[in-house]
Simulated scan of single mutants.
Amino acid sequence: MSERTPMIEMRSVSKHFGSVIALSDISMKVCSGEVMCLLGDNGAGKSTLIKTLSGVHSPSQGEMYLDGKPVHFKSPAYALDAGIATVFQDLAMIPLMSITRNFFMGREPTVGWGPFKRIDWKYADRVAKEEMAKIGIDVRDPSQAVGTLSGGERQCVAIARAVYFGAKVLILDEPTSALGVKQASVVLRYIAKAKADGLAVIFITHNVHHAYPVADAFTLLSRGGSLGTFRKADITREEVLNMMAGGAELESLDAELAEFQRSDTERKASRESAVSRKETSSASGK
């Protein structure tokens, strides 16, 4: 059986900002119907990588392919037209505007022609409500301000918008970082649904516990370089955590904590011994 053509692929991509190397020799590929979790601590290069994928930055070196064809995006608009949709942490939403307005922002459906052309709000409201219902969120009134929704529901509006407008690749930038357990589960369920619908999903996070249940593969970044790509069947949650944190650093931390605990125990025993001697001396004096 021949290997599937990746929907999105990076080959030896590097990004330099003057003398600063933000990304170094990154290779990664994601097929349709697959979730790739991009993991790394703060400063690992995750933001630069997704901005390179989504057309904000051009690679300094290396190549990118979309469905097997080389691509070079001049701007995020070109990437979006090609089917790469990115949902950033700030969601690019206006809280005081309605759910419908945020859903169709810049792509409002119209009726009529020429000077009589106008936005078809009735159709737009129905579509927004139906798309949210597909992911289990019952919107009573799509004209309500998007700021009245919970954090998880707003994430789902942004994701549903990207999917509705034909995304082939869905890039999610820390979608669960500021959410509670229940809200995060809503977003994770929709990521699983996007995968089932055949999208190639790149899920950027530093939370392994959110990433592991939905991931098919992991790419780990550290200081702009790649620690490798691993299939879920080949690596455990604990191994992912250990690689992210750095095994040597964790062992050093464990040793330091053990030393603190030993010193604390010795100081406590010393104080108790001194108190005991003082009490004995006082009793003898009487």
Rank of each mutant, 00 (worst) to 15 (best):
S2W: 03
E3R: 14
M7I: 07
E9Y: 07
K15R: 06
E34Y: 01
M36T: 06
D41N: 03
G43K: 10
K46P: 03
T48G: 01
T48P: 02
L49T: 01
Q61R: 15
M64Q: 04
K69S: 10
K74H: 11
D81I: 05
A85Y: 09
T86Y: 03
S98G: 07
T100K: 14
T100W: 09
M105P: 00
R107V: 06
P109Y: 04
G114A: 00
I119D: 00
Y123L: 12
A124W: 01
A124F: 00
E130S: 15
E131P: 10
I135K: 12
D141A: 15
P142Q: 09
P142H: 11
Q144I: 07
Q144R: 15
T148K: 15
T148E: 06
R154E: 06
C156G: 10
A158K: 03
A158G: 02
R161T: 01
K168N: 10
L170S: 09
E174N: 03
S177G: 07
A178K: 10
L179G: 06
G180L: 12
A184K: 06
S185T: 11
V186H: 09
L188Q: 11
G198Y: 07
G198L: 04
G198R: 06
N207A: 07
H210A: 12
A211F: 00
Y212S: 08
A215D: 11
A215E: 09
D216C: 04
F218T: 02
L220C: 12
G228T: 05
A233L: 06
I235N: 09
R237Q: 13
E251W: 08
A255M: 10
A258E: 13
Q261H: 11
K268I: 07
R271F: 08
R271I: 06
S273E: 13
A274C: 04
A274S: 09
S276G: 14
S281D: 14
S284E: 13
S284V: 11
